[in-house]
Nucleic acid binder design. Structure first.
Lengths: 149, 149
DNA sequence: TGCCTTTTAGTGTATATGCACGTTATTCGG
DNA sequence: CCGAATAACGTGCATATACACTAAAAGGCA
């Protein structure tokens, strides 16, 4: 089963990034599957939610909240803008372009929410209260300042 | 701070996918930063490691181990093949193409390992033993069969 | 006022990821 | 032995993600 043991070590088992990525792939697929009837991905759903809920001042602020690179966010917004779910204002000149949820975007969010809820409850059930609590607590500890230190 | 409360609920706080994605972005960036001198990403590092360690029978088998779509894996292999780190054999006809670590690939892995170790230890320290154990245990629970059920 | 620094945003390029779809090879039933 | 089902793989297309670089606006200071 295992070869080259002299050189290759226990990375698979210990690497936090590996575990995280493997889990993320399953989780995102699970939510994406559930949301498919709405045409949204879980990333898009979360993004719309944050924009609608916090009405952020700038793109960068949203990016910070999501631990997402600003340029990635800029690109993630494109399909949402194209679909008419968000609107990027140009009020204050070119700088500080606000992002706003449109009426259509809010409607889409409401439409998607039950699908999200189903997926969420399935995940919560699959994990069980203990694991869910542990996961939440541990992930909360994964912050920029803890890693930078 | 918070608006539209009638429509927009507590998705941000509860959604496991959201938490997972936000944490994953930080974690992968952390490892990617550490590995930058080697030119590998953490995804590539993990992939090379698995291929070298388990010498899998097929692409699909690797994909299963990584909870990765087979076609995604196929594409992830391309830069590694181009760089000469892996070799895709055609022994058994077109079907069941084996993936092998080349000598160069093994050398690269050895070169990268100390950088990975540094990143890993930083993450372990940032999390602390308790959170690390909880995270590991919880992520282990995120499996295909638990979610499907 | 005018320059310089900081802040905010977009583009080019590359990797990462998954679905729908098509292709080839193996296997299995008749 | 042949046709159908299955298994393994690749491509086209779209989204997701980040870094390096560039552009423009805001703010501060001489």
């Amino acid at each position: 089963m295992t070869r080259n043991d002299a050189f290759l070590s226990e990375v698979t088992g210990r690497c936090v990034a590996g575990r995280m990525l493997r889990a993320s792939r399953l989780i995102t697929r699970h939510y994406d599957d559930a949301l498919r009837p709405t045409g949204l991905t879980i990333t898009q759903f979360g993004l719309l939610h944050v924009i609608g809920k916090y009405e952020p001042e700038s793109i960068s602020q949203v990016a910070d909240m999501m631990n997402l690179d600003r340029t990635s966010l800029s690109r993630n917004l494109k399909p949402l803008e194209k679909a008419g779910f968000v609107h990027r204002g140009n009020e204050g000149g070119q700088r500080r372009r606000r992002v706003l949820l449109t009426t259509l975007g809010l409607k889409k969010l409401e439409e998607a929410r039950p699908y999200w809820k189903t997926a969420q409850e399935q995940v919560e059930a699959a994990l069980g209260e203990i694991h869910l609590a542990n996961l939440t607590q541990a992930l909360r500890q994964v912050r920029n300042d803890t890693l930078k230190a």
